[in-house]
């Protein structure tokens, strides 16, 4: 932490990475899924994680907000805050709940609350955390639904919306806590092909607005066009890490080459 302190003396906001991951390991019994990941993501950077299924990229994402609790000795800092406290075996619930509001997450299966309207879905977390009056939260939620192009669908239930619309509501719901970092776990993988673009457009807009984003995706076009940085994972490790041009046009590692050859062909 001394390092971080001396850096913050130079420039308190830009020098400190928005996300810092140190020696992140995750195993289930004998099976090790993440083999020690180190990563720094500066504020406002959009990082895409690519790799074959089973390479650990989703687990990596889920460790960041402790949906999966990392093995002891792993450290995750979001905007300088150590997520989950010192001991991952005994995570204080209150602390974690508060820290999680800094980390928005969007799931492959949307996971909207089906018993609530789009508007209620977006309002739920700010209400739970007492972020302002009912009217303020409602206005915030309406403006977020507007931002994802769904203002006129506010009163509809998830079952009345298309997959693309549901995912955009889910993005608005995650944004409602004003997170510092957004995680996208294959956000377009469950969508019909014609619905993918409307979700990618919203994600692109977020990136342009300076949101720090970590995006697990199979959308190579998104990785190439929107991301500042592409990370290729295999067997629970980061194999390649660089600009989209570097990783996607001229991959150094043979495994990256093989993966890209396969996914660009399909």
């Amino acid at each position: 932490m001394n390092q971080a302190l001396s850096m913050s003396a130079v420039n308190p906001t830009t020098a400190r990475p928005m996300l810092e991951v140190r020696s992140l390991r995750k195993s289930y019994g004998q099976k090790t899924v993440l083999k020690g990941i180190d990563l720094k993501v500066p504020r406002g950077q959009v990082v895409t994680l690519i790799g074959a299924s089973g390479s650990g990229k989703s687990t990596f994402l889920r460790c960041i907000n402790f949906l999966e609790v990392p093995d002891p000795g792993s450290y995750i800092f979001v905007d300088g805050q150590l997520i989950g406290g010192e001991n991952p075996r005994n995570v204080p619930r209150r602390l974690l709940a508060r820290q999680r509001t800094d980390i928005g997450m969007v799931f492959q299966q949307f996971n909207l609350f089906p018993n609530m309207t789009a508007l209620q879905n977006v309002c739920e977390a700010p209400l739970a955390h007492g972020r302002g009056s009912g009217a303020e939260i409602r206005n915030l939620a309406l403006s977020l639904l507007e931002r994802v192009g769904l203002a006129e669908h506010a009163k509809q239930y998830p079952s009345q919306l298309s997959g693309g619309q549901q995912q955009r509501v889910a993005i608005a719901r995650a944004l409602a806590m004003k997170p510092k970092l957004m995680l996208f776990d294959e956000a377009t993988s469950a969508l019909d092909p014609e619905l993918v673009d409307e979700v990618l457009k919203v994600m692109r807009g977020l990136a342009e607005d300076g949101m720090t984003m970590l995006v697990v995706t199979h959308e190579m076009r998104f990785a190439a066009d929107v991301a500042d940085r592409v990370i290729f994972m295999a067997d629970g490790e980061i194999v390649e890490d660089g600009s989209p041009e570097q990783v996607m046009r001229a991959p150094a590692h043979p495994r990256t080459q093989a993966f890209l050859a396969r996914s660009l062909r399909s």
Partner: peptide, 19 residues
């Protein structure tokens, strides 16, 4: 549903009642 609520920092008691 549990994961979405967890990711939003919603307490277990509120999750049970509201979701």
């Amino acid at each position: 549903q549990y994961e979405a609520a967890d990711a939003l920092g919603i307490s277990r008691a509120r999750f049970v009642r509201r979701i």
